[in-house]
């Protein structure tokens, strides 16, 4: 499975990328929503985007709205990865088309569990690489 990580922090992209690669997933990165839309058009078969909320240029919520307005991305699953904890904001993201969310800080186990809940990951042996 190919995952696009959308976060303006290179450190956070590094953390998420490491976790996803341990789970055997292919990873690409974008630094904001606008860049992520470009990447989606360049890359084939991205099945999941992990999306930060708070980003410059185009934030995560706007990215979700634009993806859901484009039928080319109907099959793309979207998971918000965010410090946003207000229920009303999370409901807004889910209503805009996000499928799931993870709160920062998160552990590897939480990410793995969320991917399983979304049906995107079977039980796997996590490598230590």
């Amino acid at each position: 499975m190919h995952v696009l990580i959308v976060d303006d922090s290179r450190a956070m992209r590094s953390i998420l990328s490491h976790i996803l690669r341990q789970l055997g997933l292919e990873v690409s990165e974008a630094a904001n929503g606008r860049e992520a839309l470009d990447r989606l058009q360049e890359l084939d078969q991205v099945q999941l985007a992990l999306v930060d909320w708070n980003m410059p240029h185009m934030n995560g919520l706007e990215f979700v709205r634009q993806v859901r307005a484009d039928s080319r991305f109907d099959d793309l699953r979207l998971m918000m990865v965010t410090t946003e904890t207000e229920a009303s904001q999370l409901v807004t993201a889910l209503e805009a088309g996000a499928n799931e969310y993870v709160m920062k800080p998160f552990t590897k186990d939480v990410v793995q569990e969320k991917l399983k809940l979304m049906g995107l990951l079977c039980d796997v042996t996590v490598s230590n690489a």
């Binding site: 922090s9 290179r10 956070m12 965010t82 410090t83 946003e84 904890t85 207000e86 920062k104």
Partner: peptide
Amino acid sequence: SDQLEDALGELTNIVGGNFKA
């Protein structure tokens, strides 16, 4: 130095977001 600032910025972002909660 960019990586140092990025890492501290993200720690601050996480602390700030959880403080907001």
